[in-house]
Amino acid sequence: MSEVLLLLMVVLLLTLLGGLVRVVRGPSEADRMLAAQLLGTTTVALLMLMSVAMAMPRLLDIALVFAILAAIAVVCFVATGEVRDHDAT
């Protein structure tokens, strides 16, 4: 059981690395930000697996905080983002 979990964890970690490609490549700011959000979601999944694999149920709390705080970055991105469009028009 734990081997399967560990294997899944490694796989998820590798998908995280795959997601990094979009963050680095972009090209637009929205691409980077959304890729980062995707990584955040994967991290939550990874944390839930770790919580079982390491027998630490409290890790679910951390996953919860990760999930809820991912919102700030997006809101900050959106709330400050349109300024340039105003400048352009």
Partner: peptide, 22 residues
Amino acid sequence: FEMIVLFMVLGLFVALAWVRLQ
């Protein structure tokens, strides 16, 4: 902008490492 987003992602990974280290 890329620097900031990568830094935020770094935070995610570092947090994972710390979970790993109990």
